[in-house]
Write a protein that binds this DNA or RNA. Structure first.
Length: 603
RNA sequence: GGCGCUAUCGUCUAACGGUUAGGACAGAGCCCUCUCAAGGCUUAAAUACGGGUUCGAUUCCCGUUAGCGCUACCA
């Protein structure tokens, strides 16, 4: 049986003996009757000194552990920590995920640790419980993020639980896609469970509820009730006759192998109101006469979502359930289950839904890949920008800030700021991304150090030009960083840097404003001379080309235009002198000569 | 149908009884400028509707309308 919730201790993490050393040990122990576990945090070289001082390195490495090791040792590396799971021993519950976990750990990126978690709060346990029936979509991602934010904000524990009780609809592919999405977000979690590993627990709870007389067996065959249910006008509450079957008869029929659904016996003897306080929606109440006798166990013996979810939430000591508003009315049923289990219900926070521009629910079938977070990843969104955007959907820091880093989000997050009405993700068929998301991404891109931006850009460039080098990328990056909004745009903005031969362009493009082909040719010839002799730096090139314009007696703009087209193959491009500098004298001369040839050919 | 939730510019949102209803994105215009961006300035744009309560309602209450959710042996 599920033991009642017990109040744990607020745990204050302490640094190791020498708080200035590059090693901090965080030794945590907890006994709750079900398991006890300890985590050793070992901060390797370069862990953030502030964290070491607070002794947080070990604990805050937590989010980097992607399994539930009974005894895990965690190393923290880098300025803000990448954890490496040193201990391969994985608890039986997590074993199915062990392989995925290792790859996640290998590829984990450092994640900023909020300055506000001054202690680890063992009371505070949040969970994200996706069901693997599709890819991770934006709404789920937001639910995950809000859970994570709240957990990190208050030093709690973040739990990932795969809700896969519906075996028929679950797919391995979907599971992978969820992990892919979460991996990209790079936020991590502390503990991980899979519901299908815990069926015994669910059955135990069902059993206990039946024993208490709070549930009954419904022997109505699955196909019978549908017709009656829908045409009866009022709400369906229960199948007639089934509630009253005496326990002995019920036991007997079950023993004889008759199929049944285990239903919760919602109290109907007298009027009663089920109440709870929602952190977002406030006081909620519903009459028991409006709640139907919902199923706990299906006729194949499998637990329903309601049962499995509550049993696990109780067993895992979940303190706050943060989930989509589509569960708001289900919560009354869950309260009833918790009550029947003899467990104090957790706190609830329901989140407004994310909807399509026409107000309909975001769905794969109707809206396509825009609902999947991997689409954003592939287009070149930065995870922190995506997180920023998604947080602003249904939540506000209330101080007019729009651009927030993950740390700032963590520090600012609270359920008070969560809005009650659904938020529209503004996309169209031509433009699959919300313009605000794109703008935020551009902002985050520019906030990145040039070196790390170059690093992120390189894989996108290499999709088209595998030979691109990090050095070249580093040189190009400053020229384009203000001209791209998504990492993926680098391919169309910087193509001429990486392409050996320029794509074909119309030679009339070379003709400057208020000029003709003859002028263009003169400009290119003068430019060639200038480029041959110029010092190949930004300033040297500017002096040379401006001088050339003067020699020809034309405006500087008329000079630059043909050169730009000759070198870039189009009129809109990054600033000219920097571009020439990066391209180098040989390439520039060759392209200018080619352009001149193009013009003469035509005449 | 029953029950529940929600309602501020095109979109995301602020204003928890007193504001010329604020900010951001997207749009328009101007400036800057070697093109394109970035940046700066300016501009247009909202309290769903009807009743109350109040000296005063975006804000509180009621109704209408609309949208969403739940109403499954899906989650």
């Amino acid at each position: 049986m599920v033991p009642p919730l017990r109040h744990g201790n607020r745990f204050r993490a302490r640094a190791g003996a020498d708080s200035d050393a590059a090693e901090a040990v965080c030794d945590q122990r907890r006994r709750d009757g079900h398991r006890s576990w300890r985590v050793h945090g070992r901060a390797a070289d370069g862990a953030h000194p502030a964290l070491l001082r607070r002794g947080l390195a070990g604990y805050d490495a937590g989010p980097r552990i992607h399994s539930v090791p009974a005894h895990a040792r965690v190393a923290v590396r880098g300025r803000l920590g990448v954890a490496v799971c040193r201990d391969r021993r994985v608890s039986p519950l997590a074993r199915p995920f062990a392989r995925a976990s290792r790859s996640l750990i290998r590829r984990a990126r450092p994640v900023p640790v909020p300055a506000c978690s001054l202690y680890c709060n063992f009371m505070l346990r949040l969970r994200f419980a996706p069901s693997p029936t599709g890819y991770l979509h934006v709404g789920s991602a937001r639910t995950f993020i809000f859970n994570w934010l709240y957990a990190r904000r208050h030093g709690g524990t973040m739990i990932l639980r795969i809700d896969d009780t519906d075996l028929e609809r679950n797919t391995e592919q979907s599971l992978n896609s969820i992990f892919e999405g979460l991996e990209w977000l790079g936020l991590g979690w502390d503990e991980q469970y899979r519901q299908s590993d815990r069926l015994a627990l669910h059955k135990q709870l069902a059993e206990a509820i039946l024993e208490k007389g709070l549930a009954y067996r419904d022997f109505t065959p699955a196909d019978v009730d549908d017709a009656e249910k829908t045409n009866s006008g009022g709400p369906w509450l229960f199948n007639p006759g089934q509630r009253e079957i005496p326990r002995e008869e019920s036991d007997h029929r079950a023993a004889m192998g008759e199929k049944f659904v285990l239903r919760f016996r919602v109290p109907r003897e007298h009027e009663e109101t089920v109440k709870f306080h929602d952190l977002v929606y406030g006081e909620q109440a519903k009459e028991t006469r409006d709640i139907e006798d919902f199923a706990l166990l299906r006729s194949n013996g499998a637990p329903t979502y309601h049962l499995a979810s509550c049993a696990d939430d109780a067993d895992l000591r979940i303190s706050h359930i943060v989930r989509g508003q589509d569960h708001l009315t289900n919560t009354f049923k869950h309260i009833l289950i918790f009550r029947a289990a003899g467990v104090e219900p957790p706190a609830f926070a329901h989140l407004p839904l994310l909807v399509a521009p026409d107000g309909s629910k975001l769905s794969k079938r109707r809206h396509g890949p825009v609902v999947s977070v991997t689409t954003y990843r592939d287009a070149g969104f930065l995870p922190q920008a995506y997180m920023n955007f998604i947080c602003l959907l249904g939540w506000s820091p209330k101080d007019n800030r729009e651009q927030l880093s993950p740390e700032e989000l963590t520090a600012a997050f609270s359920f008070e700021g969560v809005n009650k009405s659904n938020a529209v993700v503004n996309f169209t068929e031509e433009d699959p991304f919300d313009p605000k998301a794109v703008w935020l991404n551009a902002e985050h891109l520019r906030a990145l150090a040039p070196e790390s931006l170059a690093e992120q850009l390189l894989p996108f460039v290499q999709r088209d030009w595998p030979d691109a080098t990090p050095e070249k990328m580093a040189a190009v990056t400053p020229l384009i960083r203000e001209r791209i909004r998504l990492l993926g745009e680098v391919r169309s903005v910087a193509d001429f840097f990486f392409q050996p031969e320029l794509a074909a362009y119309d030679s009339t493009e070379l003709i400057p404003k208020k000029g003709d082909a003859a002028l263009a040719l003169r400009v290119l010839e003068e430019a060639r001379r200038a480029l041959e002799n110029a010092e190949f730096t930004h300033d040297g090139l500017e002096t040379a080309l401006r001088g050339a314009a003067e020699t020809l007696g034309i405006k500087a703009g008329q000079m630059f235009e043909p050169v730009r087209v000759a070198v870039c193959g189009r009129k809109t491009a990054p600033p000219l002198f920097g571009t020439l500098e990066v391209l180098g004298r040989d390439t520039c001369l060759a392209r200018v000569e080619q352009a001149a040839a193009k013009l003469t050919e035509k005449n």
